[in-house]
Computed example of a mutant assay.
Amino acid sequence: MIIPTYNRADRVCRAVDSVLAQKFADFECLVVNDGSTDDTADRLAEYADLRLKVIWQENRGVSAARNFGIANSCGEFIALLDSDDEWVVEKLKKQIPFMEEGGFEISQTDEIWIRKGKRVNQCKKHEKPEGMFFDRSLEMCMVSPSCAIFSRKFWDELGPFDEDMPACEDYDLWIRAGLKYPVGLLRERLTVKHGGRPDQLSNSVACLDLYRIYAIVKLLQDGGLSAEEYDMALAELQRKAGFYIGGCRKRGRDGQAAKMERLVQDVAAGNTVVPAEIIKI
């Protein structure tokens, strides 16, 4: 499994502890220290478990850290764990056989949500689906990285994470995956997700929908979609862009709104668009 981390010494140790406590013992755990400047390296050096390997790179963001970790891994299955989350001790023991018996190339579990130290209930819209759900994946991210395990075959076909995306890199991977593979769902809460802190990407990166728009434009420009899939992706692009444009106009950013309008018009007309231009808007 791959744990990317940046300046989260206390929290990454909690994540690592939850991995090393797994009842399924045949694994390697790669922690990618993404250029941390706190005492992350010293804290991780205290572990003596041979299953744990810590590798370092200059700070390049979560996508590059995950890619680096996966490139240095050798397992048949690849599990992701964010450094601020943790696993229930039976996660691997239950999820690996679930995938093997079901023939899944990707699966996820249900999860427990902790916000500011308190357990909270999930909204109905966050209930995890299973099978093929490309349409729902376009609307919002329906696979949680810390819950997910996928095969090497899956990764070789659909990876890597887009390193130009400081956020929503998982959304980008999951919408592409939604065209290829059904997602198995193990309906047990085997992942604990902690949230509500300012250092989370969802709180520290402005306008996440801009990166989701970027991901959809990439998908539309790459080709390979059926007519139905193309129409679904274009409709979601227009919906998300509409919210973005409306927000820009409310804040007096008319130039940004106009650029996004032109871009969506070009995509809808079948004109070639450079997706990277979206991030520069």
Rank of each mutant, 00 (worst) to 15 (best):
V89S: 14
L186E: 01
I96Y: 03
S36M: 11
C123L: 13
I245S: 04
R136K: 10
A71Y: 05
V32W: 03
P4D: 13
V88R: 08
M132W: 12
N72M: 15
N271A: 14
C123R: 14
Q122C: 14
G35F: 02
S146N: 07
R176H: 07
L92G: 01
E76W: 08
Q57M: 10
V32K: 05
I106L: 02
R187V: 08
K250T: 08
I112F: 05
Y211R: 12
P129T: 12
G242M: 05
I175H: 07
D82I: 04
G270C: 13
R115C: 13
P182A: 13
D209M: 06
A215L: 06
G242F: 02
C207K: 02
E169T: 01
G196H: 11
A241Y: 04
E130D: 14
M260F: 08
E101I: 11
R66A: 03
Y6I: 02
L81Q: 04
F27Q: 03
F104N: 04
D39A: 01
P198S: 10
V120K: 09
A25D: 15
L190W: 05
G103K: 10
D254I: 07
L190A: 05
L219W: 07
G246L: 09
A268P: 02
C13P: 06
D231Q: 11
R239G: 10
A257R: 07
G178I: 04
Q265E: 14
F161L: 06
E169W: 10
Y181R: 00
Y211D: 00
A148I: 01
L30W: 00
V217K: 09
L185E: 02
L52S: 04
N33M: 09
G255L: 15
D10L: 10
R249F: 06
E46F: 06
W113G: 03
D231N: 14
E105W: 06
P198M: 14
E277L: 12
R187E: 11
W56T: 13
D156L: 14
A25C: 10
S204C: 11
A235Q: 00
K180A: 07
K118T: 10
L138G: 09
Q221T: 14
L44Q: 01
L225G: 08
A206H: 05
K93R: 07
D10H: 13
V62H: 01
V54L: 14
C13R: 12
Q200R: 03
S36F: 08
K193W: 15
